[in-house]
């Protein structure tokens, strides 16, 4: 049995299958499209949360009158903590500059009247990690306590409310994503494999004829397996293409309303969906063929 025979046969079956092939591929495309749309939404919600999470910083206000050595030692000590990504020192002067900027032109007079700079120097600590699960939140609070305990640190500040909200959303969302994602995926697998199973069911007679003329089970099943895989592949590619068009035409333009730039599915997920679709197509064929060919 040559490769040329196989590919020719699979393509011909697909072409001659007409409406049936069209329906099968359409159903695969639609179910993967819905699954993909769900993944786009979750990918973007995740991206938003990660973006917010990455902005979280701990500000440690320093005791007054620390000398340069003490400050450097403190910076070093904080940098050594493994959750810490970046440490920067904000002197009293810089703090004042920022404060003035925040107030805006015209209000700086108020500050000018002050004799001394009341703002404390601080170090700003950016942390690693990009989401806040309950576990990560606890680690974060632990880190806050640790920095607070350091000699030379008077007070620490971090957006407590923000962290609480992020944690709640992250926890709730992962549950939703896993549960719904699981159900959607199961649904897609079921629909795709069942559609292909039905397509093969309609070839019951054809398969019986092949057995009758002495074709071996391998010879009979290989073109059908290939056809199933091909339908999975075509459905997979079409659904991703459709998804990309929807993304370009609609989601991508929402930036004007939402001031948020939607992102498309990551390449690995696209690849995963297409490959998954091929495998499910293959398995759908395999299952129904097994049913016909067990008798020899």
């Amino acid at each position: 049995m040559s490769l040329k025979y196989l590919i020719k046969e699979a393509m011909l079956n697909l072409k001659r299958g007409g409406i049936a092939s069209f329906v099968t591929i359409s159903i695969i495309t639609i179910s993967l499209f819905i699954l993909g749309l769900f993944f786009i939404l979750t990918t973007n919600v995740r991206a938003i949360i990660e973006d917010l999470s990455s902005k979280v910083a701990i500000v440690a206000y320093l005791d007054n009158g620390l000398n340069k050595e003490e400050i450097d030692r403190l910076k070093k000590e904080v940098s050594k903590i493994k959750e810490v990504k970046h440490v920067s020192y904000i002197s009293k002067e810089i703090a004042m500059e920022r404060f003035k900027k925040d107030l805006g032109e015209g209000f700086t007079d108020i500050v000018e009247t002050l004799d001394t700079n009341p703002l404390p120097a601080s170090i700003e600590v950016k942390i690693k990690g990009s989401s806040f699960t309950q576990e990560e939140k606890e680690r974060f609070l632990h880190l806050v306590a640790k920095i607070k305990g350091l000699v030379g640190v008077k007070e620490v500040d971090y957006g407590k409310e923000m962290i609480d909200i992020l944690t709640k959303i992250t926890e709730g969302l992962s549950l939703v994503i896993y549960v719904i994602g699981f159900l959607f995926s199961i649904g897609a697998v079921f629909i795709v494999s069942n559609t292909i199973r039905l397509a093969i069911l309609s070839k019951k007679e054809e398969i019986e004829i092949m057995r009758l003329v002495g074709a071996t089970p391998g010879f009979i099943s290989t073109p059908y397996l290939l056809e199933g895989a091909l339908q999975g592949l075509i459905g997979g590619i079409l659904s991703m293409g459709l998804l990309f068009i929807i993304y370009k035409l609609i989601l991508n333009r929402l930036i004007f309303i939402l001031t948020y730039q939607f992102i498309f599915l990551p390449f690995t997920l696209i690849l995963g969906l297409v490959i998954g679709s091929i495998i499910v197509g293959l398995l759908g064929s395999l299952l129904s063929l097994h049913y016909y060919l067990r008798g020899g």
Binding site: N13, E205, E206, E208, I209, L212, V213, G214
Partner: peptide
């Protein structure tokens, strides 16, 4: 496998022809 080989030495004709439509 032997059944497949044996069937290659046989021919079959049915009332309903059993031709592959496609």
């Amino acid at each position: 496998r032997e059944i497949s080989l044996l069937r290659r030495k046989m021919g079959f004709v049915f009332q309903d022809f059993k031709l592959i439509k496609t």
